[in-house]
C-alpha cells in the first residue's frame, strides 16, 4: 500500500472543504471495508484519505411520519441491524444488514460505503430501491436528492459529482411489505450471487406498489420494470407470479464470473423472485384481513 495523508474532519462542512481542496487525489473513507482492500491490492493509491466518521451530520437514524426514516451515511451495518426504529419501520433493512459480511465487518462497514462503492452486488441497494428510498447528496452547491436507483451509474460509478458526498438515505413510510432474498454459497461472509428484493401490498385482493429490484445481475442493481407493470393492480395468481418471475429473469443481464455463471444467475432471479412474491402475497393477504 502506498503512503497517504489522513484527514479526520469533525464536521460535514469541514469534510466538504477538504474534499474541495484536496481534489482528485483524495478519497473519502468510512468503514474502509471496501476501500482498504482495493488499496492493499494496489487497485487504488489515493494521496489522501478523508475519514467521514467524525462528522456528526452523517450519523444517526431518525423517523418522522412525513419523511419516514432518515439513515445517516456513516451509520454502520451493525447500527442499522440493531436499530429499533428501523426494525419498526423497515424490518427488511435490519434483516438484510444482519446477514451481510460478519459481526466484525458490520461494526465498521457503513450504509454510505455500501452504496457509494456501487458494487452491483451491494446488498443494501435492492431493498432500498424497492422501499423507494432517496439518496441525499451534498456538495459545494448544497443538497440534492435522487432516487437510490438513479444513484448507480455502473460498476463503481455513482451520480456523485466532484466535491459531493452521500449525506444520508431517506426511506418514506411504507404500508407494504418488503423482502430481500440473497443467494450466496455461505451463510455469512459472502457476496451475493444474486439478490432479489420485492415490495408490495395487497389491497382488496389486488397487488399495489409492486417494486422488484435485482442485485448482481447487471452493471448496477436494477429494477424489473416489466414484472412490476404486469403485477401492479392485478390479482396475483400462481401463473401470473410465474410470468412476473420469468420477466424479471429476462430483464437482467448477468455475466459469468467466479461467483456464478450467467445462466445460473438468470435462473436464480426467476426462482427467488417467484419465492419472494409468493411469500409477500401470502403475508399481505394475512395482513389484510386484520
Amino acid at each position: 500500500m502506498q503512503p497517504f495523508e489522513y484527514h479526520s474532519p469533525r464536521s460535514l462542512p469541514e469534510a466538504l472543504r477538504l474534499l474541495q481542496e484536496l481534489g482528485d487525489g483524495a478519497r473519502l473513507i468510512a468503514g474502509g471495508t471496501d476501500l482498504l482492500l482495493r488499496m492493499k491490492q494496489g487497485q487504488l493509491a489515493p494521496r489522501a484519505l478523508i475519514d467521514l466518521r467524525r462528522a456528526a451530520e452523517l450519523h444517526g437514524i431518525s423517523f418522522s411520519p412525513e419523511e419516514g426514516l432518515r439513515i445517516g451515511a456513516a451509520v454502520t451495518l451493525r447500527e442499522l441491524q440493531r436499530s429499533p426504529l428501523v426494525r419498526d419501520h423497515c424490518p427488511c433493512l435490519c434483516e438484510t444488514a444482519s446477514w451481510m459480511a460478519s459481526e466484525q465487518v458490520r461494526s465498521l462497514a457503513t450504509v454510505g460505503g455500501n452504496l457509494c462503492n456501487a458494487s452491483p452486488a451491494a446488498d443494501l441497494a435492492p431493498p432500498l430501491m424497492v422501499l423507494d428510498a432517496q439518496a441525499v447528496l451534498v456538495g459545494p452547491q448544497g443538497e440534492r436528492r435522487l432516487p437510490v436507483e438513479a444513484f448507480f451509474l455502473g460498476p463503481g460509478q455513482t451520480a456523485l459529482d466532484r466535491g459531493e458526498l452521500l449525506k444520508e438515505v431517506l426511506v418514506p413510510p411504507t404500508p407494504g411489505n418488503a423482502l430481500y432474498l440473497k443467494h450466496a454459497p455461505r451463510a455469512f461472509m459472502d457476496i451475493a450471487v444474486v439478490g432479489v428484493a420485492v415490495h408490495l401490498r395487497m389491497e382488496r385482493g389486488l397487488a399495489r406498489a409492486v417494486r422488484i429490484a435485482l442485485g448482481a445481475v447487471g452493471p448496477t442493481p436494477l429494477r424489473a420494470g416489466p414484472s412490476e407493470a404486469l403485477l401492479e393492480g392485478s390479482a396475483p395468481t400462481a401463473s401470473l407470479l410465474e410470468e412476473a418471475a420469468d420477466l424479471a429473469a429476462r430483464a437482467c443481464s448477468p455475466i459469468d464470473d467466479l461467483r456464478g455463471s450467467a445462466w445460473y444467475r438468470r435462473r436464480m432471479v426467476r426462482v427467488l423472485t417467484r419465492r419472494a412474491l409468493d411469500r409477500l402475497c401470502a403475508a399481505s393477504l394475512v395482513g389484510e384481513g386484520t
Binding site: 434483516e95 446477514w99 430481500y180 432474498l181 451463510a187 455469512f188 427467488l272 419465492r275
Partner: peptide
Amino acid sequence: WGQGTPVSPARDPFHGAP
C-alpha cells in the same frame, strides 16, 4: 451451530422454498 436463533424467511438457506 449457526442456528441458535429462529430463522426468518430471508435467512433461510432455502429462501423459503416450499
